[in-house]
Computed example of a mutant assay.
Amino acid sequence: MKLHNRRVAALAALVLSAGLSLSACGGDDGGSGSDNSSGGGDSASGTYVFLPKNLGNPYFDTSDNAGKAAVEAFGGTYQEVGPDQASPDAQVPFINTAAQQGASALVVSANDPEAICDALNEARDADVKVVTFDSDTNADCRDLFINQATAEGIAKVQVDMIAEQIGDEGDIAILSAAANATNQNAWIDLMKEDLAANHPNITLVDTVYGDDDDQKSFDQTAALLQANPDLKGIISPTTVGIAAAARYLSTSDAKGKVALTGLGTPNQMREYVEDGTVTEFALWNPADLGTLAAYAAKALVDGDVTDGSGSFEAGDLGEFTAEDGVVLLGEPFKFNADNIGDFDF
């Protein structure tokens, strides 16, 4: 695997070469493979179905468009399907349809760790390879999980940023996505452990949920500030939530008084960094995540990864290794006023 700093340095080029767009992709948007496939096995004729938590989410638009570019590069056929709203069982009918239509692989960001398991295992019984990315299911419901970064690393970077921004003391709150989101809850538990062990003067006073809905996240931010007049900072480990919270803070009396950090994309957060609402936030590259997920699915279809283990090439990202059913992308990257202009996704 290439080192993280090499991926960061090449990020702008990767995004441009993938031809990414932040517009939503409809369920009918598929692409047929080219004749100069670099893959072996059945990957050149296979169909790869990407199933995000919900359509119209800029984060998944970016990851799925990169996945599309990767699938087309190795000669497969790409499809994106998904619900309009993220809910625990909303992905089930799309999984069933993909299996019935003979998809080679499903690439899924799970809204719930268990609600889609039966459908995924039925798909696997029909010889559909299942890759989860961003948000995992239970391990026995998929073949590989593409982990954007270790949960510990994601939690730590967010706690470190808020601690620095509020002088390592004061009340903070967390604005999360759905209450049952696997990745969000894992990060929050680890953030609580880090705060308790290393930041005794910071108090987590509340955790609220915006369900990855812009308006609800905006309203939850307003409610947090009203209920906690001494609030010093907010962590939002979700791209929808942090952008909505920044939008609220940018025109409120709390701008410059309440720090906001978490996980966001540069294009969403640029104006809020430039106007001083947000000092620093973090994320991995969702384009890299989508690319890696596509190549991991290809490796499963080709038989290069079996029983959760094996090595494979992921295009320009280089070589990766699957161990115990997990492939690790890398470490989170911090965006701030000094570097945000270098990125476009």
Results as ranks from 00 to 15, higher is better:
142 R>M: 01
224 L>Y: 14
202 I>R: 06
17 S>M: 10
134 D>P: 04
76 G>Y: 15
172 I>G: 06
240 V>K: 15
149 A>F: 08
51 L>F: 08
22 L>C: 02
97 T>W: 02
128 V>F: 01
15 V>E: 12
235 I>F: 03
75 G>Q: 08
21 S>P: 00
254 A>G: 12
329 L>N: 04
104 S>I: 06
70 A>D: 05
305 V>W: 15
111 N>I: 03
291 T>I: 10
16 L>P: 06
33 G>F: 02
98 A>L: 00
17 S>P: 04
39 G>V: 13
44 A>V: 10
31 G>F: 08
256 G>F: 11
174 I>M: 13
332 P>K: 04
183 N>Y: 05
20 L>F: 03
52 P>C: 03
1 M>D: 13
327 V>D: 03
51 L>E: 09
329 L>R: 03
26 G>A: 05
43 S>R: 11
208 V>P: 00
336 N>T: 05
123 A>I: 05
32 S>G: 13
192 K>Q: 14
176 S>D: 15
10 A>S: 01
318 G>R: 00
171 D>Q: 15
186 A>P: 00
159 V>E: 06
221 T>Y: 02
97 T>P: 03
302 D>Q: 12
208 V>K: 05
199 H>I: 04
7 R>V: 06
200 P>I: 04
305 V>F: 13
249 L>Y: 11
136 D>S: 08
125 D>G: 07
47 T>I: 05
176 S>A: 15
270 R>T: 12
179 A>H: 10
275 D>L: 11
216 K>H: 02
270 R>Q: 11
194 D>S: 07
111 N>A: 02
29 D>N: 09
57 N>P: 13
105 A>V: 07
101 Q>Y: 01
63 S>C: 07
277 T>N: 09
6 R>E: 11
277 T>D: 06
164 E>K: 14
339 N>F: 04
111 N>R: 05
16 L>I: 07
3 L>A: 15
211 D>R: 14
276 G>V: 14
161 M>W: 09
125 D>Y: 07
26 G>P: 07
308 G>L: 08
220 Q>E: 11
59 Y>N: 12
181 A>T: 12
328 L>Y: 11
312 F>M: 11
157 V>H: 10
295 Y>V: 11
251 T>C: 12
322 A>P: 05
216 K>S: 07
336 N>D: 14
